[in-house]
Design a protein around this nucleic acid. Sequence first.
DNA 1: CGAATAGTTGACATCTTTCAATACGTGTGG
DNA 2: CCACACGTATTGAAAGATGTCAACTATTCG
Lengths: 253, 253
Amino acid sequence: MMAPPSDDCVIPIPHCGTHATRRDTNCVHCHIRHLTICGAFEPAELPHVERVVTHRHIQAGRQLFEEGTAPDYAYNLVEGAIRLYKLLGDGRRQIIGFALPGDFIGLAIHEKYSYSAEAVTNASICCFKRRDLSELFRSFPQMEHRVLSLTNDELAAAQEQMMLLGRKTPVEKVASFLFTLSKRLERLGTGGEALSLPMTRADIADFLGLTIETVSRSFTKLKNAHAIALPTPDQVQIAAIDRLEAVARGDAL
Amino acid sequence: MMAPPSDDCVIPIPHCGTHATRRDTNCVHCHIRHLTICGAFEPAELPHVERVVTHRHIQAGRQLFEEGTAPDYAYNLVEGAIRLYKLLGDGRRQIIGFALPGDFIGLAIHEKYSYSAEAVTNASICCFKRRDLSELFRSFPQMEHRVLSLTNDELAAAQEQMMLLGRKTPVEKVASFLFTLSKRLERLGTGGEALSLPMTRADIADFLGLTIETVSRSFTKLKNAHAIALPTPDQVQIAAIDRLEAVARGDAL
DNA sequence: CGAATAGTTGACATCTTTCAATACGTGTGG
DNA sequence: CCACACGTATTGAAAGATGTCAACTATTCG
């Protein structure tokens, strides 16, 4: 991650219309490498990755790329959170996922990006030209194998989300959301019992197919049932993870 | 497909508890090969596939495999339709997709099947032992490449379905469903303007996150708006495909 | 300190679900 | 060949849950 401290040079970034800091990359010390597509490499092979990757920061609220544009790049999220979403003509938004550190952004892509991506918080990413990626795949087949594995995971998660969107009640949706997020953060070592939500209620609503108000009411219900505690709106303490899981699975609150 | 007419021998099939007819396979004449994972092979290479594949029929309503069980097999659907679904403890069902001829069933699978599969109509499938598939992948890397490509397509479709489930109105959902199905069938050469639905309203409801009644009412609305005609409940004639597409995208009916 | 943003809560409206009745279509048996 | 029964679809009326609108609170940032 944190490479030579000097070289924060501002460079123009495609698909962004903005600028970002660029740093030399040091994959050897990357603490999330094992979670990502880069986990497919032996330490000795990492220079092949470093040669094609660029590191970059992106400000909270800034767009990384937009649905429908040419997918020249794929990204590895190192730090922060990014929302992936689709829009309907009249502005209705569906968030299809939140990327967290270690997540690879740019799957499900053929001709065009099938969704837009925006930074929820300040974020730090590794950028791969798709052309370079294709070459890495050729040289290191185990990398493509790993991408397939990650895509499979994402597909399974998408199916789980369909179950949630189509058939779960608002409280069940929020319980599922918190439970899943907790597990993901736990795996990242970023807290499991006590989590701080990077996203707003509006984001959560658009992820769960609800309105802000219904999300808020569902939080309150979970709080009143002593499944969670809310010291502040974005600090969630999971008081009864088993309770939360049961509700997420469809049991009565 | 239709191979030597003689050998309909009944063999026990795993994950099914039932029996099915087995036939020798003739991939060379398979008319949907170009659509499937087998499209990755040159005709000369097909014997490698034929050696590991078994052909099989499955009756309407019969289960092919169940969520949570060991995924020993993957399947290529040749004829018919299969519903892929997940269940909640209390019986709520979410259909995550309908497989049609040419579709590969068994993506998104790691340790266990992440969903159940049932025949909607009588169906005809090619069965691959996953172990054999892995070996084919090793021998023919372009096959794994193709699977990755198909998985990407499926992931993009899943994201589109999330948009539908989370943010579209009932009429928009039904319009999207009919539009997408029409396009898929068109590609298969099985009618685009006039389509016959293999699935019931209950299936459609569980696919779109609605009730049977709401699905029915939405059909009626589309009919009254002259976007479709319904000679019988399962014969849909698309009267105005552009209208249907517009509604699917979120325009007012 | 005041404005702005985000979240919560209440009251009400609306839309989908639920419950119930009716119609339709197919297949079976008289 | 017709009658009946069963499964499926449609339609209507009522109930209920989520969405909408609005007020209020809390927190953050000039």
